[in-house]
Design a protein around this nucleic acid. Sequence first.
DNA 1: TTGTATGCGTTATCAC
DNA 2: GTGATAACGCATACAA
Lengths: 330, 330
Amino acid sequence: MLNKASLAQRLSPETRRRVEEAALRLGYTADPVAKSLRTRQSNTVGIMVFDLADPYCTRLLKGIESSLIRTDYLPLVMSMQNEVELLSRYWKLMIERRVEGILVIANWPSVNLSVFETFRSRACVMIGATPPGDSGISYVTVDSMDGGAKAMAHLLELGHKQIAVLRGPAGIDESEKRWQGMLHCARQAGIELDLRLCPQISLLPHFNSIFEEADRLVSELLANKLPFTAMLTFDDLSAAGALRAFDRDGMRVPDDCSLIGFDDIPYAQLVRPPLTTMHQPLEEMGAIAVEYLLAQMSRKPGDPPLDALARTVKADLVVRESTRVCKGKP
Amino acid sequence: MLNKASLAQRLSPETRRRVEEAALRLGYTADPVAKSLRTRQSNTVGIMVFDLADPYCTRLLKGIESSLIRTDYLPLVMSMQNEVELLSRYWKLMIERRVEGILVIANWPSVNLSVFETFRSRACVMIGATPPGDSGISYVTVDSMDGGAKAMAHLLELGHKQIAVLRGPAGIDESEKRWQGMLHCARQAGIELDLRLCPQISLLPHFNSIFEEADRLVSELLANKLPFTAMLTFDDLSAAGALRAFDRDGMRVPDDCSLIGFDDIPYAQLVRPPLTTMHQPLEEMGAIAVEYLLAQMSRKPGDPPLDALARTVKADLVVRESTRVCKGKP
DNA sequence: TTGTATGCGTTATCAC
DNA sequence: GTGATAACGCATACAA
């Protein structure tokens, strides 16, 4: 009885003003529940998160919610605590609750993403990974190849030639891309990476356990006695693991070895030495994702299908104190 | 037409089974929206969070959601990104959406908590702080005095006598309690803390900025040249700040100075050296809070008012590598 | 035991 | 341009 559309539209401005004034005075607000029942929509968007504790998700969420708060949509975040099995359950819950759009933060090991096909025709945008095949789902990702290359380029500029790489888990999209970027960049500079210096982290259950695994892998590497003057890691957490392994071995960063992380989570600034890393513009990505989602949602059922929107942003190098020029002889 | 209560209760088991089978086959699920409108309740509980990025909140949320998932209630988490002004807005949103109970994670500077009076009669439990006055609101907190005392006791056992304390911000409930616990414990051991060694962190906008502030304060302390062999900090983040200040000064932990944090956020295990700290059983607290909330919610409108439930749990010392026996002469 | 009608608070449609 | 009314999907009170 009191919405901008339909009826109220053709009310005299005067009457209208009076009604609104009265509503305000009496503290009347339209009941969203009844509205939902009637209009079959809920003013709610679902946000799928794999692990709320992951700083990656956290920063993204900040960007998302900051944008969403300007709209009338309420975010319904579903965190599945590392339990992949919860996906389908949460998915069902979201549909039941009539979410009008879904944002999925896809930084987890490539679970079968076919579930999202359900929403192909509806509003859905994926963040942090490109949807499989030609699913027609919108997405926003960062250019990981470019990021990997930039990190490598920084090391090369500093004169490093013997470079170790702690590669990310095979199951994750970003792993391969970052690695390819590094490889490509080194090759262009005429440097062939020694694969014995480039172990790969195996797929792990918790985002946090990558730390232990990195520690273990770097310890092994150090035991091999193959010389290197710099290391690139998959992310900041694995850099932390490397840092600990170095520490145990009496190796100092950056004096004995330069180190570059990836992601720029808050932790990167707290650690000693503060980590040089690739900054992902997660807040910005969140904002873009919301923008895309709103665009998709504005599509009326009758309208022609909207093209999938896509954007990949660049990661930027943040130089802090874990890198320095190579002192060893070339 | 298909609920356990009322009608269905007195159906023949046979008919009932058939109906359920049919429902399953047709993929029928009751529409939660219509149900909400009718019953005036939403199967939703609101969760008020000050800053989602704070690891403290994150761990608590994990405990909360793990419990909540066993129930039919959907968590609606509202993170107000450090913006106190958002409180009233989110509050209104929650009421509108008919949340049946509210969990508030109260680890933020003592904003005017009178808002929560609105829910005095309804289901509301506060986590991490005791509600002001005799508001009659349920809560679950940790025994911070006991925690502070335990940390201090550990240091005393190791033979430390010249102990510095980085006190928490004045606005936060926990600050004073932890400090009192430490003070009391030391006094009982016949040791009077040197107040010049116990600076207080000022109230800060972001949970993360406490790190910088701690760094600054400890640097000042070191400049004073007053000797001390151990330090207690307000939380793990401020311990990280202390760690950096120590590092810059060439002071080594734990060789030159022992250090104890508080909270046991994931970061505490990642830092070098791994931090000895007071572990807060946040997951457990979350579970208790949910249990209390469910109890409160089960109260029918007609029932006699339920007493406020309250529980304070103990924090435990986790000894890692940032503390060792005092080597200096007594 | 089973069926039927009414209302929850909106929006939208259709006569007026 | 205005006012009454049906329908959204469920729960429930009441009649059969």
